[in-house]
Amino acid sequence: MAGAGAAGRAPVDHAENRYRDRGELRYCLRSIAAHAPWIRRVFIVTDDQTPAWLATDHPRVTVVDHRELFADPAGLPVFNSHAIESRLDRIPGLAEHFLYFNDDIFLGRPQRPQNYFLSSGLPKVFHDRRAVAPSAPGVDDDVFTASQKATRHAIEQAVGRTYPHILAHTPYPLSRSLFAHVEERLPGRLDTISRSVFRSADDLAPVTLAAHLALADGRAVEGELHHAYVSTGRAEEIARLPGLAADRWSDAFCLADDDTAPGLSPEEQQRAVTAFLEAYFPVPSPYER
């Protein structure tokens, strides 16, 4: 596990929402089947878990256990998405070019490969409007903010350039070569991240590292994708869901599973998110039993 962060700051993130399952994976796969049928294979990385509804015998879906990605089994189990991301390029059978989804990211309308990669194969990088402050991680920063600051500083030190905005919560266009490029630029850092069992304030964010180092060295380009981010723990954000379903304007959207704020109960959050996903993606995918 990574060491503690600055004094007074929670060193790791144990929040319940990091482990909660609202059935998002089923609808994520439905969105892929409906809107990106050109995706040839789907790899689902889990900690020795397989949803009961998943058609594991489907020739285009593969469940990948963490043991296949991490060289040292003594470091398992791992509960840190950053650690898992540091080993994505080790997925057996993974193509050179791939899209990385979190299970709370969905495709909102039909997509083309050109939305994510140039014809030359260069991946596109999508940024959010939210910026990462240039200051060093501090005692008042949550784990996410501290990690993003640490990543920004690591890139500045490596290439002398700064990328102030976080990546948009969309499918991430990547390549296996980009992970090798991170290793060339920042030797040993991915290995260090892989040993961080829980999401930590000291983590670097591997996908952000790969994307921004690639931009700096001409291995990726800036791109644009219509996207939405909905923080489902707030009533005013939940109120956006009907419009998102009716207009279907977004190429991709993220339903962030945040803790509920006053005025919204966990049960109301669950009902609203489940009803929205079922209404948006009512057709089962080929990956369901």
Rank of each mutant, 00 (worst) to 15 (best):
A136K: 09
T162R: 15
S194K: 08
M1K: 14
A180W: 13
I32M: 12
P173I: 10
Y287I: 01
Q148C: 04
A74L: 10
L225D: 00
L88I: 05
D57K: 13
H169Y: 08
A180Q: 09
F276C: 05
A36F: 10
P173L: 10
R90V: 06
K124V: 05
E156R: 14
D47N: 14
D203F: 08
R112L: 13
D13A: 11
A6D: 12
P266K: 05
T192Q: 13
A71I: 05
L264S: 14
L213C: 08
R189F: 05
R234D: 08
Q148H: 09
D48E: 08
R112Y: 07
T192W: 09
I155E: 02
V283Y: 06
T170S: 05
G121E: 07
R9P: 12
H82C: 06
T274F: 08
L178Q: 12
L264C: 14
L122T: 04
F144W: 11
D217M: 11
L190T: 00
F43P: 10
V283E: 14
S81H: 14
H14Y: 10
A279R: 15
C254R: 04
T274D: 14
Y100Q: 15
T46W: 02
P110C: 03
H165D: 01
I32R: 00
N80C: 12
D72K: 04
F43K: 15
F126R: 02
D65V: 03
S250L: 04
Q49F: 15
D140C: 04
A210K: 00
T46A: 08
A154S: 15
G188Y: 03
P164K: 07
V132A: 06
A228K: 03
L69R: 02
H181T: 08
L54N: 06
M1W: 06
F144V: 12
E278L: 13
L244A: 09
F98C: 00
K149T: 03
R26S: 08
D13L: 13
G233I: 07
A252I: 12
N80I: 04
D89W: 12
R26G: 02
R219Q: 06
V159E: 05
F179C: 01
V12K: 14
P286I: 02
V283I: 12
E96S: 11
P73I: 03
T56S: 10
V273R: 00
I44Y: 06
S147M: 14
A261R: 15
H226W: 15
V197D: 10
V78T: 12
I105L: 15
A133K: 08
I39E: 03
D65N: 11
R234Q: 06
M1V: 13
S175D: 06
L178D: 00
G5Q: 01
I155Y: 07
A210P: 03
R195Y: 06
A239P: 07
A272I: 13
A279I: 03
R20T: 13
L88E: 01
E222I: 14
F101G: 01
Y163I: 02
R240I: 00
G108D: 04
Y280F: 14
S120L: 11
P92G: 07
E224S: 06
L264G: 11
A246H: 12
I39P: 00
A74F: 14
L255G: 10
P92T: 05
F198C: 01
V230A: 02
A2R: 12
V143W: 00
V283M: 05
I193V: 11
